[in-house]
Design a binder for these strands. Structure first.
Lengths: 150, 150
DNA sequence: CACCTAAGTTCAGTTTCTGGACGAACCATC
DNA sequence: GATGGTTCGTCCAGAAACTGAACTTAGGTG
């Protein structure tokens, strides 16, 4: 199987992974959620080749995760902003952060803290059930084929 | 920046992405959560080269996400099981699934349904605040340097 | 004019991924 | 005891992706 074939699988993971599932794309999304918007800023912060930045930003724009918006004319310059579809990735990014905090933070603790403005507390993300609102763990879930299965 | 350097960044995303941030690793984790445990099963389901399966399983075992456990002697055979650290990735996997369901499920609907055994309902994962238990969106969060920052 | 910025593109060289063949260790069957 | 099957890999040549560095475009600054 090739990377492009992933997008055609009858699996939401495969289809998502085809878009966001590589190292640099996830790092770009991290920076986007931290407010980075310009090509040069992504390149400087990540320190990777401009070719890759170009390719990844293009993919994310093509997929509607980022929008390329001009912020000045003469010369025209663009910035990359998260769309609603991009903002919907927040739980993905936060759960990755949280896993890293739990398993890779050294003695010093987490590199970043997240404050929930609504309640004013530093928080950790908790995955809950949309129906009963209780926290959900892997062992409490049963998976079965849905309407979109093959 | 090279891939290996990611693990040394003062960023939980980078450190996590160094472990789980590539396409095939995420697909292997998906299958692991669906109950796949054997080398041959991963290879057959994913249809990718055995070299990659070997390398990815080794990385996940080295990182303590999977455990390699013998399930028979003569000849000795192993299976790969999620450790607690691996099970902790469930929110990551589920949030990716959910994003895919929302943005890439066709008219047919989601390929897989998830039933919360505790309450008996099919559910969607909702990210909530550990402190006030309300759902959290990207715009309601403020990020700042934590104790583990450089 | 010389130099600067932002956002890319181009290119040769290196690294990584790929499919397919092969190996090792055992079991079952004829 | 030769053949074939199962499971879990390794090895290799070729293809694809990534890399750093230089170059381009379109304008702005002193």
């Amino acid at each position: 199987m090739k990377w492009e074939d992933l997008a055609d699988q009858p699996c939401s993971i495969a289809r998502s992974v085809a878009v966001i599932g590589d190292r640099w794309t996830l790092m770009i999304l991290r920076d986007a959620f931290l407010g980075v918007r310009r090509f040069e800023a992504f390149q400087t912060r990540l320190g990777i080749s401009r070719t890759i930045i170009t390719a990844r930003l293009k993919l994310l724009v093509d997929e509607g995760v980022l929008a390329k918006i001009p912020y000045q004319d003469r010369p025209v310059r663009h910035e990359y902003r998260l769309t609603q579809k991009g903002l919907d990735l927040y739980p993905v990014v936060m759960s990755i952060v949280h896993w890293g905090d739990r398993h890779y933070a050294g003695d010093a603790g987490a590199p970043l803290l997240h404050r929930h403005k609504t309640c004013g507390c530093d928080f950790a993300p908790v995955m809950t059930c949309s129906e009963c609102h209780a926290p959900v763990g892997a062992r409490e879930v049963e998976t079965r084929a849905g309407p979109g299965a093959v």
